[in-house]
């Protein structure tokens, strides 16, 4: 905790993330309008619509604020689900030798499968909905977490205190929950941030090529609409329609990047950091 406080980048990232989270949570109170409410279309920014209105007359600022909700919802739910699956498999595989071979082959399989193409093709065949996106991401993002947790558990289970607890006849579930899991928590956080960063990028891409949920517009979906608009490039519309949505994505990704850096520095203080950004 203290270490984190000393990391400036980490604090900036955390600040940004909290900022977006607050917007997401309090969207109905912050947004000037219901994002589905219609006004005149493609109005330029004015006192009533700070970022103007979109092609069907919805207030862009409100859309952006509610879009935070959708984007972060998908990202956080999917990454928690993915990391959750990863933790479970990692713990089980690492601790109980008898599952190791098959589950690790499965993990390897999921690690080698070309993720994004598979996610795109599955998303294309499902009805576009927020939950379906969460589901696909969760299914294809757990493997790396599982592998990392397993490696950690393998070293932990041979530590003296774990061996000792087992000798005293403690149940496996008890040992896993109280003597192993707490030690992998920092790793879990790093994974959560890593996976979130990937998912928000992938989600915006999927929405951009038309696989998003049209009833719950994420930032990527807003960019999709803007890109399809005939005069987006030659008029000034892009400045308040395309740019804010794009920058929100960029800032959120940066937030995750910074937090990830700070956490890695704590968990893995050697110089050999993983190269993700």
């Amino acid at each position: 905790m203290k270490q984190y406080k000393n990391n400036k980048l980490g604090l900036v990232g955390l600040g940004l993330l909290i900022f977006f989270l607050l917007i997401a949570v309090f969207a109905p109170y912050i947004a000037p309008y219901d994002p589905h409410q219609r006004f005149d279309s493609t109005e330029h920014p004015n006192s009533e619509h700070l970022l103007g209105t979109n092609h069907v007359g919805q207030d862009i600022l409100s859309e952006l604020i509610y879009g935070t909700r959708v984007s972060l919802f998908i990202t956080l739910f999917a990454s928690i689900a993915a990391v959750g699956i990863g933790i479970f498999i990692g713990l089980v595989v690492g601790y109980f030798k008898r599952f190791d071979f098959y589950l690790m082959r499965l993990t390897d399989l999921f690690l080698t499968i070309p993720k994004l193409p598979v996610i795109i093709i599955i998303a294309a065949f499902m009805l576009p909905s927020v939950w379906n996106l969460v589901f696909v991401f969760a299914i294809f993002e757990w493997a790396i977490t599982a592998r990392i947790i397993r490696a950690e558990v393998l070293t932990l289970r041979h530590r003296n205190y774990v061996e000792a607890t087992r000798l005293f006849g403690a149940k496996d579930s008890h040992i896993l929950a109280w003597h192993i899991f707490p030690y992998v928590v920092p790793l879990v956080f790093v994974q959560l941030v890593l996976v979130s960063r990937y998912i928000i990028l992938a989600e915006s891409g999927l929405s951009f090529i038309g696989l998003g949920d049209p009833t719950a517009k994420s930032w990527g979906m807003m960019l999709h609409d803007a890109f399809a608009y005939p005069t987006i490039f030659i008029s000034d519309l892009w400045m308040w329609w395309m740019l804010p949505a794009g920058l929100c994505i960029v800032l959120t990704i940066l937030a995750f990047t910074f937090i990830g850096y700070a956490l890695e520095e704590i968990v893995n203080p050697s110089l050999k950091k993983s190269p993700w950004i």
């Binding site: 493609t42 092609h55 608009y229 005939p230 005069t231 987006i232 490039f233 030659i234």
Partner: peptide, 23 residues
């Protein structure tokens, strides 16, 4: 994008219809 292509001279004519009235 037809509008930018027409303005930039990539094409010499473009058809717009319905809601593309904005272009």
């Amino acid at each position: 994008n037809d509008a930018i292509a027409l303005k930039a001279g990539d094409i010499d004519v473009a058809s717009f219809w319905g809601k593309e009235i904005v272009a």
